[in-house]
Design a protein around this nucleic acid. Structure first.
Length: 456
RNA sequence: GUGGAUGUAGUUCAGUCGGUUAGAACGUCGGAUUGUGGUUCCGAAGGUCGCCGGUUCAAGUCCGGUCUUCCACCCCA
C-alpha cells in the first residue's frame, strides 16, 4: 500500500502563487544589495562539522543538523565507545558534516580559504537556505532563507552606516514600517567590567535582553540566581533605567561606564555611527537599545536587530560586527560586519499586512485551445511568433473538450484565449477572446501580436 | 530540550451519553451545453476517523504510547 507522503517537520513546499511573492521579496532585497556594490556568492548546504561547531555557543551546537557519514558509518567507531554508548561521544564518530546554521560562518570559512583570489574589502551578498533543529512555531522554521550582506577586511564604521542604509532602503521598498535596534558588545563588556563581573558578560547580557519582556524585577532575580553579586546588580540599575534620545543615552552611559576602556570605545563607536546616520535622512527609526544582546558568540562591536512595527514577530533582520571570526580559521586581524534579512519572517509579516503587490501570477498571457491535428499545425507558427516577441503563451497539449480547456485557462488566470477551428482556418484568422470582459474579435496573427505586445 | 493544545473526505469542519450503514460545505469528476471559462441546475466518486496498543459485548468517541501541526519557554531569522 502507498504510504502517505510527507515532508520533514518544520519544512515547507511552496506553491507558484507563494513563489511569485517570495521572488518579489528576494529580487527587491538583492537589487538593493547590488546597488551598494555587493556581489553574490554561494557556499555548500553542508559544511564540515569542524567548521560549524563552537561558533554559535552551546545552544547553537545543539541545533545543528548533522549528516550521517556515508557507507559503513560504524567502521570509525572504537569498540569501547559502542559498548558503553554515550550519544554525545558516539556522534563525533558517526558524523563529520552538518547543514549550515547561518551564512556568516561559512562566509568566514570561504574568505580564509580563498583569500588570495579576493579583493579586500570584500563585499558579498548571499541568499540561501539555512537549517536549524529548533522546535518549529510561529515565525520559526527548520529550513529558512537568510539574505546576508557582509563586508570583510575593513574596520571603518562607514560599513556599519552603509548596512543601516541598506536596511532602510530594503524596508522602504517593501513598504514595511520597522525599527532598527542597535547596541554594541563593547558597551556590554564595559558594563560587565564596571560592575565587577567581567567574566559574567554572557549571563548579564542574556538577562538584560529580557528586560522588556519580563521587567526589571525579574531580571534582577535572574541575575541573582545566576550568581551575580547584590552589589553588582545594584550598580546595574542606572544602566537599565537609561532614557532620552540616542545621544543623551550615550552621555549618561559615559558617566557610569566611562572608567572601562572597552566601554569608552563602544560609546565612541556608537557616537560616530549615530552622527553619520543623522546626516542621512532615513525613514526607519534607529534606537540605541542596551537590552539588545544577541546570543551569537562571534559579535564584538555593533549589533543590529530589526523588528516590524505593526506585527508581533521575532526579529526579522539581525547582524553585527565580528572582529575575529576568520581568526578561528587561521586568518587573524580581519574584521567584518554584516546583517541578515530573514526572508521567511519578512514574508509572514508582509502577508499579514497585505503588503505584497497584486501579483502578476499569470503564467501565460495567451492560451490556445487545441481542436486537433490540423488546427495545431495552423497554430504552432503563431505561438512561435508570439514567443519570439516575448509574449508568453501555451497550447493545450490535447484536443480535450472545450469546457475542460476553458476551465484550465480560467483557473490559471490567463487573460486571453485564442480559438482557431475550421472557420478561422478558412479565413486565415484567429478568434481572440478576452477572458476578463468575455468579448471576442477576429484578428490576424500580426494583429494578435501587436495587441498583446503592448501589454493590453 | 521543557510545558500546553491538536489530528475525521483533496480542503475547512460537524459527529450527542461509547451503540449498528461516519455527515455537510467547498473543491474534484461527469452531465445539462458534440466550438466557449468564471454564474446556475442535476448527478457521481472520494474515509485503514494520524499511527500502535489497551479497556469494552461494542471505540471516531474512553485510556496509554508515538508521530504531525500549532502555541508558549529556551534560543533565534
Amino acid at each position: 500500500m502507498a504510504q502517505k507522503p510527507s515532508i520533514p517537520k518544520g519544512t515547507r513546499d511552496f506553491f507558484p502563487a507563494v513563489m511569485a511573492r517570495r521572488n518579489y521579496l528576494f529580487d527587491t532585497i538583492k537589487s538593493v544589495f547590488q546597488l551598494y556594490g555587493y556581489q553574490p556568492i554561494e557556499t555548500p548546504a553542508m559544511e564540515n562539522l569542524s567548521t560549524l561547531l563552537g561558533k554559535y555557543g552551546e545552544e547553537g551546537d545543539k541545533l545543528l543538523f548533522k549528516v550521517l557519514n556515508s557507507g559503513d558509518f560504524l567502521s570509525n567507531v572504537p569498540g569501547n565507545v559502542l559498548v558503553d554508548v554515550d550519544p554525545g561521544k558516539v556522534g563525533a564518530y558517526l558524523s563529520e558534516k552538518g547543514l549550515r546554521y547561518d551564512l556568516t560562518v561559512p562566509f568566514a570559512r570561504f574568505v580564509v580559504q580563498n583569500r588570495n583570489e579576493l579583493v579586500f574589502p570584500f563585499k558579498r551578498y548571499q541568499v540561501q537556505p539555512v537549517w536549524r533543529a529548533d522546535r518549529p512555531q510561529k515565525g520559526r522554521y527548520r529550513e529558512f532563507y537568510q539574505c546576508d550582506v557582509d563586508v570583510i577586511g575593513s574596520d571603518s564604521l562607514l560599513n556599519e552606516v552603509e548596512l543601516v542604509q541598506i536596511v532602510d532602503e530594503v524596508y522602504r521598498r517593501l513598504n514595511l514600517s520597522v525599527t532598527l535596534k542597535i547596541n554594541n558588545r563593547k558597551i556590554l563588556s564595559g558594563i560587565a567590567e564596571t560592575i565587577g563581573e567581567a567574566d559574567r558578560i554572557v549571563d548579564i547580557t542574556v538577562a538584560i535582553d529580557k528586560l522588556e519582556k519580563i521587567g526589571n524585577q525579574k531580571v534582577n532575580e535572574e541575575l541573582a540566581a545566576k550568581g551575580v553579586s547584590p552589589e553588582a546588580i545594584d550598580k546595574l540599575q542606572p544602566i537599565l533605567a537609561l532614557n532620552g534620545n540616542n545621544f543623551e543615552k550615550l552621555e549618561q552611559l559615559e558617566k557610569v561606564i566611562g572608567g572601562s576602556l572597552s566601554g569608552r570605545q563602544g560609546i565612541e563607536e556608537m557616537h560616530t555611527i549615530f552622527k553619520l546616520l543623522g546626516t542621512l535622512n532615513l525613514a526607519l527609526k534607529v534606537e540605541l537599545d542596551l537590552t539588545l544582546a544577541r546570543g551569537l558568540n562571534y559579535y564584538t562591536g555593533a549589533i543590529f536587530e530589526v523588528k516590524a512595527n505593526d506585527v508581533e514577530m521575532g526579529s526579522i533582520t539581525g547582524g553585527g560586527r565580528y572582529d575575529d571570526l576568520t581568526g578561528i580559521f587561521g586568518m587573524p586581524d580581519v574584521s567584518g560586519v554584516g546583517i541578515s534579512f530573514g526572508a521567511d519572517r519578512i514574508y509572514d509579516v508582509m502577508l499579514q499586512l497585505n503588503l505584497f503587490p497584486e501579483e502578476t501570477l499569470t503564467a501565460s498571457k495567451v492560451f490556445f485551445v487545441n481542436f486537433g491535428e490540423q488546427e495545431t499545425l495552423y497554430l504552432l507558427p503563431v505561438l512561435t511568433l508570439l514567443r519570439a516577441n516575448g509574449v508568453a503563451c501555451e497550447l493545450y497539449p490535447e484536443a480535450a473538450k472545450m469546457n475542460k480547456q476553458m476551465t484550465y485557462a480560467n483557473r490559471k488566470n490567463i487573460p486571453f484565449v485564442v480559438l482557431a477551428g475550421e472557420s478561422e482556418m478558412a479565413s486565415g484568422k484567429l478568434t481572440l477572446k478576452n477572458m476578463g470582459t468575455g468579448t471576442q474579435s477576429l484578428v490576424t496573427s500580426n494583429e494578435l501580436l501587436s495587441m498583446l505586445k503592448g501589454g493590453a
